[in-house]
Write a protein that binds this DNA or RNA. Structure first.
Length: 842
RNA sequence: GCCCGGGUGGCGGAAUGGCAGACGCUGAGGACUUAAAAUCCUCCGAGGAUUUUUCCUCAUGUGGGUUCGACUCCCACCCCGGGCACCA
């Protein structure tokens, strides 16, 4: 059986490394001693390290495990360094899969979820991660989600939550609305990659993320250095700030028509505008077309366009199409009449849904105007060149205005400022900034989520539930069919209620909240997880926040992190906290793959974490995920390679086991001046290793090379065996003790066991990270590579600190090097003390 | 199209201006064993010269450059992965 513990087969004399036994033993002791339970303590420096909370689904695989292994190393190192470490864990427990599974298996989402939570928890405990389990939270519990509702009400009061009718992405399989970012591959559902998303219009709840667009952008500066550059960049692009101007074009010859407002980043090119182009869904269109001479044809084309534009699938490759409305607009600067067109490439959702086409200075406009034979007029010239004769591509850079009335011969920057000012003065426009970022649609027509706490009263309209009546509890008894919208809407006991204001009959909101709401602030709740009066006590936040280190997948680079940042700013403006950003440092770890693709249930390539723990033990599993690749890179799972980690831990175990009886009674130390060469060598190796491992843990997070160093040290000790005669017990102890301490953050159970074998009864969890002894790391002698003209020709052994002359003398005497110098004059000598000698000969 | 990563042995990877390939996996050989497993030790980029010792050349995607010296810095290009995209 493949799941068998491979140590189980070892029947040789003497105790062998038995991870099952050791790991259980120490997990029990840690729990008894409450080692990982933390309280705020202003007398100690704090460290808040957090891994993104998991969605508990199915089995936990090595991909999950890696994330927690990385976080646990950090937590344990920081603890050994004297920090008061907060390291909590919880469950992102609401969400669609629970509901889908419930429908399929005829169970309740709560049951399914709790079963998975129990399973996930068991595996996490099996791996010995150092969480403070008392702080565990589950977002599907009323104790938690009531605060989602509380925050929602605060946002409602401040106008940050509102309802609007909006065109939404609708997945016919999920029967729910998808966020834009849940639409993937140009129009497919992120959960059903083969299902095309439809477009529907529905009344929905939104949170006004756009109110914080500017801050969300600006505060990214605070994250520089602490967050990966690419995540900052992705967020910046997502927010998509664009500075420009809005300008109104009056509609000619149509009494009562509102002017058409366009957005442009290049108001300086307005004299070159040869058309105004509207998005197919532009609200003014019906009025424009009503008595238009081109009505018949135009309406037919529009109808077709609206139909096809629903398919967002091939937006990128779609041919630019357009038609003339039969109407004209008046350029407010030149007074010129230009045709109003409709174009399928103009987006209603961005800017004003209308643009001015300046074909000479915009590549896309140029393509459109050429296709429909609209005129092209140059109004900006490059500063240096006289006059470009034929326009091949559009000239999109800044230059000097021409043919632009009073603005001619102005530089583009100047013209932009002056023209925007003029437009504002005359009242037909102004400088304006638009964002790509949209408000956050949080309505979900689903059961398994936080109920939105409002009622609809015939008399009073939308009425918020008073705080005192929170939580609005999700009813247990509902019919889940997976069809026809929200299950809550079909549950009369939930829907029918009374209005908190007038006491009359009212209908409850049946939408539930997006689960990103749950994860937007959960890390605050960890600081005060059982508070029944408030989401959290602000004084506790002051101690623990910001999060010093957040660890998770790059997949959440935009949404989860952006929403969390938004929530933080809202809470700050509510006066609950004082910081601007919740997360000081972010680390995005790579995925664990098998067969070149990420582990996932649907691909059937998962390696179960529990299975690995049974076969090799938790420590081997942890070590391997840390060793096989640097943490930020993807890791290809290899069943053969993990054997190497298993062998290594056995090697260490046997080493300590062999020496423990002789050294457990003595005190570890460096020995005295009369150290034997072997002692010197071992101490040097141990302290050199410690120096570099300390560096790898603290500054570089290169766990893989740290492990390699510890392996090297272990190999060195083996090579020096037998140690009994030439290495005194105290030195043996010193070396093995350091080895144990260095492994402790990565393989904590084994390290505890070794620590005990070495004669310590207190528990390694109380031990501090050791300091290396600089004097012991020094070499007496070094081998210096000697190059001639930059090519390696030999090596010489010299005392540390030898000067260039001494090294050169030895090099000239070296049989391998001398021939390359014979009869040649050294014209230049490069000498790096203890590192290198390079002789340049003519 | 734009923006980020990345390209090093049979494989995962190490080295961030100074001995390329640490460490691990795989493979080969040896020791131990009745035998196997486990364990311990040795070897393992390519080509050539010399044969039992060593030496030389080539080699970090490709081509240039800077430097005494480049996996590392600069320029151009190729390939792979990811993100964004009619954004006005």
């Amino acid at each position: 059986m493949a799941e068998q513990n491979i140590a189980g087969g070892v029947t040789a004399a003497g105790p062998a490394y038995d991870p099952q036994k050791i790991e259980e033993k120490w997990q029990k002791r840690w729990a008894e001693a409450r080692v990982f339970e933390t309280e705020a303590d202003p007398s100690k420096p704090k460290y808040y390290v957090l891994e993104m909370l998991p969605y508990p689904s199915g089995t936990m695989h090595m991909g999950h495990m890696r994330n927690y292994a990385i976080g646990d190393v950090v937590a344990r190192v920081k603890r050994m360094r004297g920090f008061n470490v907060l390291h909590p864990m919880g469950w992102d427990a609401f969400g669609l899969p629970a509901e889908n599974a419930a429908i399929k298996n005829n169970t309740h989402p709560r049951e399914w979820t709790n079963k998975n939570i129990a399973e996930f928890q068991r595996v996490l405990r099996r791996f010995g991660f150092s969480y403070d389990w008392r702080r565990e939270i589950s977002t599907c519990e009323p104790e938690y989600y009531r605060w989602n509702q509380w925050f929602f009400l605060r946002m409602l009061e401040r106008g940050l939550a509102y309802r609007k009718k909006s065109r939404v992405n609708w997945c016919p399989k999920c029967c729910t609305v998808l966020a834009n970012e849940q639409v993937i591959n140009g129009g497919y559902c992120w959960r059903h990659e083969d299902t095309l998303v439809e477009s529907r219009e529905i009344e929905q709840w939104f949170l006004k993320t756009t109110a914080y667009a500017e801050q969300l952008l600006d505060d990214l500066k605070e994250l520089e250095g602490g967050w990966p550059e690419r995540v900052i960049l992705m967020q910046r692009n997502w927010i998509g700030k664009s500075q420009g101007a809005k300008v109104k074009f009056a509609v000619a010859d149509l009494a009562g028509a509102e002017p058409i407002e366009v957005f442009t980043t290049r108001i300086d090119t307005i004299y070159g505008a040869t058309a105004v182009i509207l998005a197919p869904g532009h609200p003014l269109l019906p009025k424009l077309l009503k008595d238009s001479p081109a009505r018949g044809e135009a309406e037919a084309k529009l109808g077709k366009m609206l139909q096809t534009s629903v398919k967002t699938e091939d937006l990128a490759t779609m041919e630019k199409e357009g038609f003339f409305t039969g109407r004209y607009a008046v350029n407010p600067f030149s007074g010129e009449k230009i045709p109003i067109w409709v174009g399928n490439f103009v987006l209603m959702e961005y800017g004003t849904g209308a643009i001015m086409a300046v074909p000479a200075h915009d590549q896309r406009d140029l393509g459109f105007c050429r296709k429909y034979a609209l005129p092209v007029r140059v109004v900006v010239q490059p500063k240096e060149v006289e006059s470009p004769k034929a326009v091949e591509g559009a000239f999109t850079e800044y230059g000097v205005s021409v043919n632009s009335g009073p603005y001619s011969s102005m530089e583009s920057e100047t013209a932009i400022a002056k023209m925007a000012a003029f437009a504002e003065q005359k009242g037909f426009g102004r400088a304006e900034t638009v964002f790509r970022l949209k408000d956050w649609g949080i309505s979900r027509q689903r059961y398994w989520g936080t109920p939105i706490p409002v009622v609809y009263c015939e008399k009073d309209g939308i009425v918020p539930i008073p705080d005192s009546e929170l939580p609005v509890v999700l009813p247990d008894k509902v019919k889940l069919t997976g069809e026809g919208g929200s299950p809550l809407a079909a549950t009369p006991e939930f829907v029918n209620t009374t209005c908190p204001k007038c006491g009359g009959p009212a209908r409850r909101e049946t939408d539930t909240m997006d689960t990103f709401v749950d994860s937007s602030w959960y890390f605050y709740r960890y600081c005060d997880p059982r508070n029944e009066k408030r989401p959290y006590d602000s004084t506790k936040i002051v101690y623990w926040f910001q999060i010093d280190q957040y660890i998770g997948g790059i997949t959440h680079a935009i949404l989860h992190l952006l929403y969390s940042r938004f929530w933080c700013k809202v809470m700050r403006d509510l006066g609950l906290i004082t910081h601007n950003e919740p997360i000081a440092r972010l680390f995005t770890q790579g995925m664990v793959q098998k067969g070149g693709v990420a582990m996932s249930k649907s691909r059937g390539n998962v390696v179960g974490a529990e299975e690995m723990a049974q076969k090799y033990g938790a420590d081997t599993g942890r070590l391997y995920t840390l060793f096989a690749a640097p943490p930020e890179k993807d890791l290809e799972w290899s069943e053969e390679s993990i054997e190497g980690s298993w062998r290594f831990l056995n090697r260490v175990y046997r080493l300590v086991e062999r020496h423990a009886p002789a050294i457990k009674g003595v005190k570890g130390g460096n020995g005295d001046a009369a150290a034997s060469p072997k002692e010197k060598l071992l101490l040097r190796k141990a302290h050199q290793t410690l120096r570099r491992v300390t560096q790898d843990f603290e500054t570089r997070w290169h766990f893989n090379s740290a492990i390699a160093l510890v392996m090297e040290m272990t190999n060195e000790i083996y090579l020096q065996e037998p140690l009994e005669k030439e290495v005194r017990p105290e030195v043996r102890k010193e070396v093995l003790e350091l080895l144990t301490l260095m492994l402790a953050p990565m393989t904590p159970h084994l390290a505890e066991e070794l620590w005990e074998m070495l004669g310590y009864s207190g528990g390694l969890w109380k031990a501090s990270w050791p300091a290396f002894d600089e004097a012991l790391t020094r070499e007496d002698e070094v081998e210096i590579p000697v190059q001639v003209n930059g090519r390696l020709r030999g090596k010489v052994k010299v005392a540390v600190g030898a000067n260039a002359d001494e090294v050169e003398k030895l090099a000239r005497a070296d049989a391998a090097i001398a021939p390359h110098l014979a009869g040649k004059a050294v014209v230049k000598r490069i000498f790096v003390p203890d590192k290198l000698l390079n002789l340049v000969v003519a």
